[in-house]
Write a protein that binds this DNA or RNA. Sequence first.
DNA 1: CACCCCTACCTTGCATGCAATCGAACGGGG
DNA 2: CCCCGTTCGATTGCATGCAAGGTAGGGGTG
Lengths: 230, 230
Amino acid sequence: MTRPVTSAERALTALRELIMGGELAAGARLGEVELADRLGVSRTPVREALSRLAAEGLVQVVPNRGARVATWTVAELEGVFDLRAVLEPRLTALAVPNARPADVDELDALARRMCEVGSPGPGQDLDALVPLNRAFHDRLVALAGHPALAAALAAAIHPPIVRRNFLTYDEESLRRSLAHHGEIVAALRAGDPDWARAVMTSHIANARAVMVRAARLQTTATATPEEETA
Amino acid sequence: MTRPVTSAERALTALRELIMGGELAAGARLGEVELADRLGVSRTPVREALSRLAAEGLVQVVPNRGARVATWTVAELEGVFDLRAVLEPRLTALAVPNARPADVDELDALARRMCEVGSPGPGQDLDALVPLNRAFHDRLVALAGHPALAAALAAAIHPPIVRRNFLTYDEESLRRSLAHHGEIVAALRAGDPDWARAVMTSHIANARAVMVRAARLQTTATATPEEETA
DNA sequence: CACCCCTACCTTGCATGCAATCGAACGGGG
DNA sequence: CCCCGTTCGATTGCATGCAAGGTAGGGGTG
């Protein structure tokens, strides 16, 4: 997570944010000059960013025909959650013996903060939840100390990632999800890998149910393919 | 597997081959101009290829300081095999219901061919084994019909992939490995996912033992860090 | 003699220009 | 009226030029 200093990296992160944030709709055309203007750089770093995003699976590039924001089907989304259901519990269990008290405290803080901004009431801010959630899971991934597993997870998740994640959670599922984070912290503190693994399994299953339902709604809602550039 | 038509794609595949084939040693410096000359293109497609290879994990890029062929430790290699031990058996089991007789025949042909060129004797050709093995596993991945799992696997494996894979197999392990391919074909024909999964689990465990041993030998042999460009 | 600084070269990073390719609109023929 | 060939426009793909940053080597000083 180094500060992007080169133009290419800025373009990369900016584009990622644009796509993940939903500002560039799925299937939207990504013209090089247009993006270059928008980001204030030349086409070269934009091309590099598009290339890397294509490798990540966030955009699809057809030679001589430009790039588009990647789309995914409900089946693909379900596949991703199948995979998360296998990998993330393992990863969580691996994190348990590596978690030092300071690490657990950090995760605890994140979990509590998520409960604050995620609970219904005046302080609710669902947009703030997304980065907190990423921070929580990233921290957990780092604790597992398993680069290959992390790479596999990143490769599988990046594409259909939780685009505008928590906006699709119903209240009950969201409460469950937030509770899971707290329970994972508890399992870490207890040093119980099996417990942590089980909670994460529930966590993914819960998320899966939410996302699949949302995807179904979305695809039926936008049955007519839309064509927009921004 | 489309024929690379653009220079960037040719550079990408060429570089991959160069690295995977061992012509570019791990840690070797990858100068843009040098590679451009070597591949007969300009620096632009080379840069793009390096970028994408960095995303794949085959090379490491430090801003303003160029790219090097990625190196990996024994621990990382073990991590990769941990992951394969989880993912590939699942994937194999998924392939079972999707495998049509024609597909099984194709895999059967590959397995038999591998036995031919892999068995000790006058016809032995270990170099020919590598592409056959890749074809076999790729075919299996395709049959599973699980893009996310395939992406995760590719992300995890690509880096420390089977570089000059079978050269490190001792005779007994190689025989086991070849037998596994045949047995997987049998499990597919029988339509038994559990059988297929079990064989693949053994297959990965066997490969793991071989690769880890080879990596240990190699790292102790080249204890002094070498610095070479080609 | 060791350490530090300064300079010069090399490499990367980015912008821009030109050629090739693709898509679409237009006109002609069936 | 519909279909096909052709031309024009737009966009990508690649090469090259220039500037910024980094590294290595040499000279000077403590």
